[in-house]
Amino acid sequence: MQESRAVHRSQTTGSAKLPGHFYLISLVALLAAVLTWFIWSAPVRPRTVWLGGGWVFGVAFYFGALRYPDLYWRTLERWYHELGSPRYFYRFSGLWLPWLVGIAVVLCLTGLIWGLAFAPPHHEQGNSYRIIYLHVPASSAALMGYMAMGVAGLVALVWRLKMAEIMIKAIAPFGAVMAAISLISGAIWGRPTWGTYWIWDARLTSMLILLFLYLGVIALQNAIRDPRQAGRAASLLSVVGVINVVIVRYSVDWWQSLHQGSSMSMFGTAGSAIHPSMLAPLLLSMFGIYFLYAVTVLIRARTEILWRERKSNWVREEVS
């Protein structure tokens, strides 16, 4: 199948004049950063880690986009073509996949074994707190997945990138599973902490709504027969959903304060400070889950690419 796509921008030569896309991308990046910060729910004390990450990203962006616009735009344009084209994506992801699998397995195993077996017990909750090594990574992966779907949806709607639609389809089921794991592990954790499996805690309620949002996207995708149309519809719903997630989170927090229900404080009343010996395995397992996420998404995206392009010559060659 021919890739017919107009290149909107030709080469930028001077650094004086910034192209229109720059503002859009900056806006999206800023929005994503703000959303991530706002919604970040992990009880990890060093939120500064993430703010620092944001700084690194911002500085890189500044030097990339403002100081060396030529290089920046050329790289961006190459990515746009390579990652935007299913064929290239298939080839590149095939190269990355073994590495990602390796990293994911190592990180997950180290993080989980360290956290479950070797990290010190909590002074109030004893050993029951150890479920955070599953609960927290799953929660944050579910949330990040939805954010990623929103960004992919925006890209799919604005630039009509087929790959972005494929990514949404690839992300949604894993995100839903992560949300479900987060809910189940939260319930299991709730039993020793609150004496009951379910409480309408703000965090658990938000996660439940997130699961509903995921299920909505999946249901819409399954209901529409034409995959291209389904992809665009799911993109729109993801974008609407991401805006909504922000408001949901705010509203649920407010609702909680209104009814003064019990809130799960993960580390007791002493504040959310977490000892480094507990934090290190948590971060490891969190990144492990992220890499696992990437692996799953890539595999699903590759399958979807093969399915969508099954009539094209390169897929025939690839498969035979």
Binding site: I209, A219, N244, I247, S251, W254
Partner: peptide, 16 residues
């Protein structure tokens, strides 16, 4: 399907 898509989106309005 409409109910499935829309009801989660209604939550903030309902809460407030």
């Amino acid at each position: 399907l409409l109910a499935l898509l829309v009801l989660p989106l209604y939550i903030p309005v309902l809460v407030f």
